[in-house]
């Protein structure tokens, strides 16, 4: 009997489901999505690489490619890198729509700006 009541109540309410992907998905503010590096702040200290449980982060210390190599396909979105960062250079965005058909787009290079690099070398 009470299921009838519940069904009647549900008719008056809006549907419990969201028509994702035709409508935007519900994203709570603290969602752990894709991490993004701010290379102005990054000091290439390796702490994020060490903190990463799945080896999704690789730090390239020197050369023209000096910076962070981030493997999206290995990332488990645990946000340990952001917790480990001493300069708060890593922000965890709420972006969760990260699927792709190509493997090459899954590797992201964050390059250290050249000017900042020479400054870091001086200090």
């Amino acid at each position: 009997m009470s299921l009838f009541r519940e069904a009647a109540r549900q008719i008056l309410r809006k549907p419990a489901t969201v028509k994702y992907p035709f409508e935007p998905g519900i994203v709570p503010p603290g969602l752990r999505g894709r991490p993004v590096w701010d290379m102005e702040k990054c000091i290439l200290c390796v702490l994020c690489q060490n903190a990463c449980p799945t080896a999704a982060i690789k730090m390239i210390p020197k050369g023209p490619d000096a910076g962070i190599e981030y493997h999206l396909d290995r990332c488990i979105f645990c946000a340990e890198c952001a917790d480990a960062c001493p300069r708060k250079a890593i922000t965890i965005t709420t972006n969760f729509e990260l699927a792709d058909t190509s493997r090459s787009t899954m590797v992201q290079h964050y390059k250290k700006p050249q000017q900042a690099q020479t400054q870091a070398a001086k200090t």
């Binding site: 419990a16 709570p28 603290g30 979105f77």
Partner: peptide, 19 residues
């Protein structure tokens, strides 16, 4: 159950692997 999952997502940042 979906509403509980949403609550957990809001507290922890993920639905299943709360971390």
């Amino acid at each position: 159950r979906e509403m509980i999952m949403d609550l957990m997502e809001e507290i922890s940042g993920n639905r299943v692997t709360h971390a």
